[in-house]
Design a protein around this nucleic acid. Structure first.
Length: 731
RNA sequence: GGACGCUUAGCUCAGCUGGUUAGAGCGUCUCGUUUACACCGAGAAGGUCAAAGGUUCGAAUCCUUUAGCGUCCACCA
């Protein structure tokens, strides 16, 4: 009897197991053979530590990659971190102000960047260690960072390729300006918040024929037109006319234009058009060739051209305009309305739409695709980026799971505007464009000659992370990694980044490589606390996964985040659930202890050549039946795994192990083991069952299963063959 | 304003293309110190499957409507 097997499973030894895996070299696919299977890790932000949501995301990926590895695939899970420009920029500046009282402008661009890089270095290390704790079987030798040298070259190459194709352009557009963060943000980085507001009904002047309604009277100094619906009989007579009005000491030229976007039922059915300070108004202005008159600056203050309002904050200016309207009897009424204010997702600042010179990616321009390995798209075919994005999903080349996310994806493309990729931040990839007088140069390096001045702006973080599936593999160099591992197979992002990231990866990969970035986008939900609240810094209800792992073990936490959680659904995190799976780990441990302690001596597996069981013999019919049923389980679990249905696979395994194997099979085997005529068969049956179950459980609970495996084997369970069928050694 | 999802035992959730007395885990209650495990075992209670109507021999499962909760998109000037 093997006396030294402990009475309960000790999860504190998990780190030793991780050490064994890592030093074995099998996280690195160079040491594996077979058909490649690739997962590129969604890079966690380099802003700091990981939360339980990361554990959820990584558990899904680790299950997928371990399953692939056991099925004999050349499995690569490539880890990395994201520089997260806005987030990191903000965070480090906060720390800087706290520590030194100086902001980034006071210490200067160069010093600030250095500060950020030091910070990032530290948090990358922290993140990597946390990922080891939860068991990520990632290939650390290929670890990448969105801002390292290789990725910088890739980003510049990507920019240049798109620039040369005419898809990247620079122009003045009304964009979402964040006065707080002092940068432009894209449409996907703004959040609408409902707020009580007022709707003011007024005329510009007594001699103006139409009353308009607005929630922002202070912007009316920038009006160029009044738009009405072309079908609106009230206003038809005025369309095309132009009026000059005096408005708070300013002269405004107001033309009456007909535009279908105007809702005749809202307000007075007439809209004051402010081209410079509203994206929709700007679009109306484009259609009717109206001038763009900017009256608010980058700091959210009224500009000099507003005369008496110059230098005032918009809020104060609004009060003055309203007061002026009242004094002049122009204000007809004020209504309370509910409105959405637009805020910047990161900084929380209220967005001020402004006309700005920015860089954009044109999603509607036709271009001949240089190279295509895509279905339905020939090399050289004229396509738009939108068409590319749509095509690869509708063709089924990329599958977005769950299906409802696919609908959201198509809908997003339908509403997509050109992507603003420039940011007025310091930390990030600098735009690879240089200027000299009237010359403009786009390249990978600064051009020769003097007086060239590089563009001040940096790129949207999502520009570089959109390249992630292939820059991590060495692109633009034609590396063997790129050849071997791209397109990748599986990607598991949260639904909150379906648009900014998943969609953009598809855009970039199809454009630059003519390949899909991944076959499956398995969109997961978020982890909430047991009351259904989000974990957030502001609520201060965060949970450190490392603490949970210390208390219950990584396997327990992984199971708690997977069992019964349907694809794409949110998880309610409950510590009791983790505790339950800690108990399960112990159950597995003890069942194994029983089986091993009842195995014959000498040990079942000889040292060195542990593939050959010493034990062999005929199975009695009763035991054979158990093995047959186990075979059905193997088939079912395998099918579920292939469908990425981890929720049911894990639940079924849990149930079978505990309530069939432990409660029934082991219990019923006890008398068999006591009887010499049935003992040998029972031993084979138990051993076969246990080890098959360990294999099936390994992707979900890698630590406990490997620890048990190590009691009796010289090789690693991690790379053992997934049971295609249950093989019983009998003569 | 559009689109989608959810509503099944106290709690968290399964129930696929409709078919025997609706399932699991946790929790609760009762019993149990049987040599793998008390991080355990045996057993029990607990649901008019949100509501109404319809299709059908038969519906938690399909259709319609309603209510509540949630999410995404658009953005109303």
């Amino acid at each position: 009897m093997n006396e030294e097997i402990a009475k309960s499973y000790d999860q504190s030894k998990e780190s030793e197991i991780y050490q064994i895996w890592e030093s074995s070299g099998y996280f690195n696919p160079d040491n594996l053979s077979g058909k490649p299977y690739t997962i590129i890790m969604p890079p966690p932000n380099a802003t700091g530590t990981l939360h339980i949501g990361h554990t959820f995301e990584h558990t899904i990926q680790d299950i997928a990659i371990r399953f692939a590895r056991m099925r004999g695939r050349k499995a690569l899970w490539l880890p990395g971190t994201d520089h997260a420009a806005i987030a990191t920029n903000t965070k480090v500046e906060k720390i800087l102000i706290k520590e030194t009282g100086q902001n980034r402008h006071q210490i200067g661009r160069e010093k600030f960047i250095k500060k950020v890089e030091e910070f990032v270095q530290g948090s990358r290390g922290t993140i990597q260690n946390q990922l080891r704790v939860i068991g990520d079987s990632a290939d650390w030798s290929r670890e990448a960072f969105t801002m390292d040298e290789e990725r910088t070259l890739a980003v510049r190459t990507a920019f240049k390729n798109m620039f040369d194709a005419g898809l990247v352009y620079r122009g003045i557009r009304v964009i979402n300006w964040d006065p707080k963060g002092q940068t432009a943000v894209s449409d996907d980085e703004v959040v609408y918040k409902p707020e009580q507001g007022k709707l003011y009904y007024f005329k510009y002047s007594t001699d103006f024929p139409i009353t308009i309604a607005t929630t922002r009277p202070e912007t009316k100094l920038g009006d160029a037109a009044v738009a009405v619906n072309p079908e609106d009989s009230r206003y038809k007579q005025f369309v095309g006319k132009e009026y000059e009005v005096g408005f708070m000491g300013n002269k405004l030229k107001i033309r009456i234009v007909a535009d279908e976007t105007v809702d005749p039922k809202f307000g007075t059915g007439a809209v004051g058009v402010t081209p410079a300070h509203s994206i929709t108004d700007y679009e109306i202005a484009q259609r009717h060739k109206l001038p763009t008159i900017q009256i608010i600056n980058e700091y959210g203050k009224m500009m000099d051209n507003t005369q008496s309002l110059a230098g005032k904050k918009t809020k104060d200016a609004r009060e003055e305009v309203v007061a002026w309207l009242k004094e002049n009897n122009l204000l007809e009424k004020i209504e309370d309305v509910e409105l959405n204010i637009t805020t910047a997702e990161r900084s929380g600042g209220i967005i001020e739409p402004l006309p700005k010179l920015q860089w954009f990616i044109d999603v509607n321009k036709k271009f001949p695709i240089k190279h295509s390995e895509l279905k339905n798209i020939e090399t050289g075919q004229e396509v738009t980026l939108k068409e590319l994005m749509r095509s690869v999903v509708s063709s089924g080349e990329i599958q977005i799971l769950p299906e409802r996310e696919e609908k959201k994806y198509f809908h997003w493309i339908d509403n997509l505007r050109d992507w603003n990729i420039s940011r007025q931040l310091w930390y990030g990839h600098r735009i690879p464009v240089w200027y000299r007088n009237d010359e403009i140069y786009c390249g990978l390096e600064a051009p020769g000659g003097s007086n060239w001045r590089q563009d001040e702006d940096t790129l949207d973080t999502w520009f570089s992370s959109a390249l992630w599936t292939f820059t991590t593999l060495g692109w633009p160099k034609k590396t063997s990694d790129l050849q071997t591992f791209h397109p990748t197979q599986f990607m598991s992002p949260g639904y909150e980044i379906l648009f900014p990231w998943v969609a953009r990866m598809i855009l970039m990969s199809t454009f630059h490589l003519g390949q899909i970035p991944f076959e499956i986008a398995y969109i997961h939900g978020i982890v909430r606390n047991k009351d259904g609240q989000k974990f957030s810094k502001s609520l201060d209800n965060g949970i450190d996964p490392v603490d949970i792992v210390t208390k219950y073990g990584a396997d327990a936490l992984r199971m708690a985040l997977v069992v019964g959680v349907g694809t794409g659904n949110d998880v309610k995190y409950d510590e009791m659930k983790v505790k339950g799976y800690r108990n399960f780990a112990n159950k597995i441990w003890n069942a194994a202890r029983f089986v091993y302690n009842n195995a014959p001596q000498p040990p079942l597996y000889q040292s060195g050549g542990d593939r050959t069981p010493v034990l062999s013999g005929e199975l009695l019919p009763r035991d054979q039946k158990i093995i047959d049923e186990l075979r059905e389980l193997v088939t079912r679990i395998t099918e579920q795994m292939e469908k990425y249905d981890f929720a049911h696979a894990s639940e079924d395994l849990y149930h079978y192990f505990w309530h069939t194997f432990a409660d029934k099979i082991i219990e019923e085997a006890k008398p068999k083991l006591a009887d010499e005529t049935t003992k040998a068969s029972a031993q084979i049956m138990l051993m076969t069952s246990l080890e098959t179950l360990l294999k099936l459980l390994h992707p979900f609970m890698p630590f406990v299963t490997e620890t048990i495996w190590q009691l009796n084997h010289k090789d690693l369970l991690m790379i053992r063959q997934w049971p295609n069928e249950v093989v019983v050694s009998s003569k």
